[in-house]
């Protein structure tokens, strides 16, 4: 069977497995909605004419969702299946590693789409989130999601070689994600952060994804309030592509099927 077809089958299987782990379904999918509910209820201030903090926050949570379902999930789940020996067994079969990676990308994309739908639904219903009205914005939303989740998937696979054990993985991975969220303008308005913090955040994809999502969900004149007084979409695409390439190369070179 072809590598792609097996990849699709892996994706199907992974989705089935994911849905059967109820705790992780609830945690990964509902957690951002819970955060949105808390932040949206606490911070009711407007940060610019016609822009509430909860709108700003939804854009950040959609971007974070890409990091959670891709990077965070994979960088924790892969070391766990390595501990269990599942990966070593797969390595012993004629299934191509590429099929395995495709399967992971599929389960990440599926759970991410579901999560985005939940966030947008709740955001629109409870916190006055304006869904994009023009085709151009939806198109922009689509490429941001595709590029963002691809980037997040390969970086998650690449980072899965870092934790020494499945049990310790969450302790290594989760703080990184949380710190990045603070630095990248998810929990705070990015332009309010000190310059040095903005500079650090600009090295990582999350800052660019959140900014990109704001360009989709906030009024176009809000661009002037950004740190660079622009949405910087070209730069965003470039930086995401660079991380995608770095992540892919690292995944291929450093992936560990078992702890020797």
């Amino acid at each position: 069977m072809s590598i792609l077809k097996l990849g699709a089958l892996r994706g199907q299987l992974e989705i089935k497995e994911f849905l059967r782990q109820r705790e992780s379904v609830v945690f990964t999918l509902a957690f951002p909605v819970i955060l949105l509910f808390i932040f949206g209820s606490v911070f009711k201030n407007t940060i610019a004419p016609g822009v509430t903090f909860s709108q700003y926050f939804v854009a950040g949570m959609v971007a974070s969702g890409l990091v959670n379902t891709g990077f965070q999930q994979l960088a924790i789940a892969i070391p766990m299946s390595r501990d269990l020996g599942t990966l070593k067994r797969l390595r012993g079969t004629p299934m191509s590693p590429i099929s395995y990676f495709i399967g992971k990308a599929i389960v990440v994309t599926a759970s991410m789409l579901f999560q985005v739908a939940l966030l947008l639904g709740f955001g629109a219903l409870l916190f006055g989130l304006h869904l994009p009205t023009s085709g151009i914005l939806w198109l922009r939303f689509t490429w941001l999601i595709l590029l963002g989740s691809a980037c997040s998937t390969v970086l998650g696979i690449a980072f899965s070689s870092v934790p020494k054990s499945g049990r310790g993985a969450s302790a290594v991975v989760s703080p990184i994600v949380i710190v990045l969220q603070f630095l990248s303008g998810v929990f705070f308005v990015f332009s309010d952060l000190p310059k040095w913090m903005q500079d650090i955040a600009a090295l990582f994809p999350l800052k660019w994804l959140t900014q990109g999502m704001r360009s989709v969900f906030l009024p176009s004149d809000f661009a002037m309030k950004e740190a660079a007084h622009s949405w910087e979409l070209g730069k965003t695409a470039l930086i995401l592509v660079i991380w995608l390439i770095i992540g892919t190369l690292l995944s291929i070179r450093t992936f560990k099927w078992s702890e020797e």
């Binding site: 497995e17 782990q21 299946s81 269990l84 020996g85 070593k88 067994r89 012993g92």
Partner: peptide, 11 residues
């Protein structure tokens, strides 16, 4: 057939 495989077991 490896010595120890301990799949998560949801399938």
């Amino acid at each position: 057939v490896l010595q120890s495989v301990n799949d998560a077991g949801d399938l």
